[in-house]
């Protein structure tokens, strides 16, 4: 298996020979990679290759699936994420995940954003925190006067930004975005992409996407997963212009889906 040259930035998340199986099905096989701090990293690959599973490993979400087994290590800011004294609830506050299916709670816009801070016992200026999160997610100007409306009444693009804002309200170190634009039209997709770019220096962002052009547009580094294996990982430009593996090239040129 190929290992990319180590990026210059210090890694914030490092997977070491990470494997995940669901029952007898192996979803990830010996994946090792480092996510540099403050960068945008894309995970691309055909459907079912394990993108979502890899993201879920980073926020310890897979252990909630019955029958899921995780092997290998993940280091986060120097600590062993799966160590015995690590509280997964705490991990999820520092490594926030936004899911592919938008999942607004059947509550008001405000209560959606305030959900995470309240759950972690936040006692500061909740109003200010909500406004900041909505602003960062590019939603504030649209909902400033309707914080009490049910989140379920927002448009699809707004719901996705609400879900991003909800995670931002936790002020996590890392933002995991699973197919953030798969259900959106080109215009809403462009908005989300510009928001992701704007968040980039402050947050380390990992995006799973089946859309290779999105990866090319957005990310500093790209990882190509195929059938649970990390085939190639490197600077996005290098990977797209001069892929090392034949499989990567045929995927990028659209000869395989």
């Amino acid at each position: 298996m190929s290992r990319p040259a180590a990026p210059a930035d210090a890694p914030v998340l490092t997977a070491e020979r990470l494997s995940v199986r669901f029952g007898r099905h192996i979803a990830l096989k010996d994946v090792s990679l480092s996510i540099p701090r403050g960068r945008i990293v894309s995970i691309i690959g055909p459907s079912g290759c394990g993108k979502t599973t890899l993201l879920r490993c980073f926020s310890r979400m897979n252990e909630l699936v019955s029958g899921a087994r995780t092997r290998g290590k993940v280091h986060f800011a120097g600590m062993d994420l799966y160590g015995p004294d690590i509280d997964p609830v705490e991990v999820r506050r520092r490594i926030g995940m936004v899911f592919q299916k938008t999942t607004p709670f059947p509550k008001s816009v405000f209560d959606n954003i305030a959900f995470g801070p309240r759950a972690s016992g936040f006692t500061g200026d909740l109003q200010g925190l909500v406004e900041e999160a909505l602003t960062d997610a590019g939603l504030w100007s649209e909902v400033a006067d309707e914080l009490d409306t049910p989140a379920l009444e927002l448009s699809a693009g707004q719901k996705q930004r609400l879900c991003i804002a909800r995670t931002l309200a936790l002020k996590p170190d890392v933002l995991l975005l699973d197919e953030p634009t798969s259900a959106l039209d080109p215009e809403a997709t462009a908005r989300i992409e510009s928001i992701i770019r704007a968040l980039s220096p402050r947050y380390t962002i990992v995006i799973a996407t089946y859309n290779r052009w999105q990866a090319a547009r957005l990310s500093d580094m790209t990882a190509f997963l195929d059938r649970g294996e990390l085939l190639e990982y490197g600077l996005t430009e290098t990977l797209f212009t001069n892929p090392r593996e034949a499989r990567t090239e045929s995927y990028l040129t659209g000869r395989t889906q």
Binding site: M61, G96, F99, T103, F105, F115, G116, A119
Partner: peptide
């Protein structure tokens, strides 16, 4: 939907809170 509960847990809420604040409502 299960993703709704996942979202609650991913926001760092303990399970009991997700049950009372997300699942039951």
């Amino acid at each position: 939907p299960a993703p709704l509960l996942d979202a609650g847990l991913a926001l760092g809420a303990p399970k009991g809170r997700v049950v009372t604040r997300v699942l039951l409502p």
